[in-house]
């Protein structure tokens, strides 16, 4: 099995910040809006170096989304920055009408997604955002797995015409994908080859899936790990090709099992190749305060949980 090395733990939000700063230098149409979370979103460098293109809107996310929609008129490419909860649930109607239905070229960049936001607790730990965003017609939905991929995705979405939801997180996690990688929106990345099970993971759980695959190898179970960074449009071909070979699948995401990646994969399989599937996701619950690693363990969102679901799904083949 191909092995991946953690080159040093880094937060995905810093990958966003680095990508945004690079865009500041390379694309004069890129503008950034932030709702009083500049430091948290790692937008400081862009703010310092391109102050005329940085818009501090205050704690007013609805206005931020509307302004971003308006700023596209005249050719700007707005990147909005706030936590995932305030980027989606709080402003769903603004995104729906002024951005998605109006087909505005806005990049909604959302940090602190999921349980790994940690100690602030459930008020801030949105586990429903992928569902909210993927249901909007025309919205591209991306959830990146590490620093390098988040930086690459940030650069890529600027080149994409149309609204995008880009989701990343707070904690420092393994940085294992290639530096300066090419990021193709809608294209799954196959990380390992395997015969017995397909593990489809997104976001922080991609690294956990790799750890699970290594552990499973010791038990002579060969897992094919696929990194689905783009939840919508979903790479149907990659999913079907792998599951045709392995005959079963485990999906893994830091999100509610209702409305997330797992349900999208289940739909593709139901329509084309009904197959046993197990879901590593939260079970229709809110989160709680705690250390991120402890939370992932309690809610069953880590390598250990993936491994258990693999053992279960293989028996259902």
């Amino acid at each position: 099995m191909k092995k991946y090395t953690d080159t040093g733990k880094k937060d995905t939000r810093s990958g966003f910040g680095a990508g945004l700063e690079e865009l500041g230098k390379t694309n004069e149409n890129v503008v950034a809006l932030c709702a009083d979370l500049t430091g948290s979103l790692k937008m400081d460098a862009f703010k310092e170096n391109h102050p005329e293109r940085f818009f501090q809107v205050g704690i007013a996310e609805a206005n931020m989304m509307g302004m971003a929609a308006g700023m596209t008129i005249g050719g700007k490419i707005p990147f909005t920055g706030t936590f995932a909860n305030f980027s989606t649930g709080r402003v769903y109607d603004q995104i729906r009408q002024s951005i998605a239905y109006s087909n505005k070229n806005v990049k909604i960049c959302a940090s602190h997604a999921g349980l790994t936001l940690g100690e602030d607790g459930a008020t801030h730990q949105i586990l429903e955002d992928l569902g909210l965003m993927k249901m909007l017609p025309g919205m591209t939905v991306i959830n990146t797995c590490d620093y390098n991929q988040t930086k690459a995705a940030t650069l890529a979405v600027a080149e994409h015409e149309g609204p995008v939801y880009l989701r990343f997180g707070r904690p420092k996690v393994a940085n294992f994908t290639e530096e300066n990688q090419k990021f193709e929106i809608g294209k799954a990345v196959q990380l390992t080859e395997g015969q017995d099970v397909t593990i489809i993971a997104t976001g922080h759980l991609v690294w956990e899936a790799l750890q699970a695959a290594e552990a499973l190898e010791k038990d002579n179970i060969s897992a094919e790990v696929i990194n689905i960074h783009t939840i919508k449009p979903l790479d149907k071909e990659a999913i079907l090709k792998s599951v045709e070979k392995t005959g079963c699948v485990v999906t893994a995401e830091e999100h509610n099992y209702l409305g997330g990646l797992g349900e999208s994969v289940a739909r593709v399989l139901a329509e084309n190749m009904p197959s046993p599937q197990e879901f590593v996701a939260t079970q229709d619950t809110f989160g709680e305060s705690g250390n991120p690693l402890e939370l992932l363990d309690k809610y069953g969102l880590n390598a250990k949980a993936i491994q258990q679901k693999v053992e279960k799904v293989i028996k259902r083949k």
Partner: peptide, 27 residues
């Protein structure tokens, strides 16, 4: 028509965004 409207309260934000872009574009 440059933006959808109907769900109320959103138009001023959009207008402000467009106005800011006009300034950036020296329009």
């Amino acid at each position: 028509i440059r933006v959808a409207s109907g769900s109320l309260g959103q138009g001023m934000s959009v207008a402000i965004g467009a106005a800011q872009t006009k300034k950036l574009n020296k329009d």
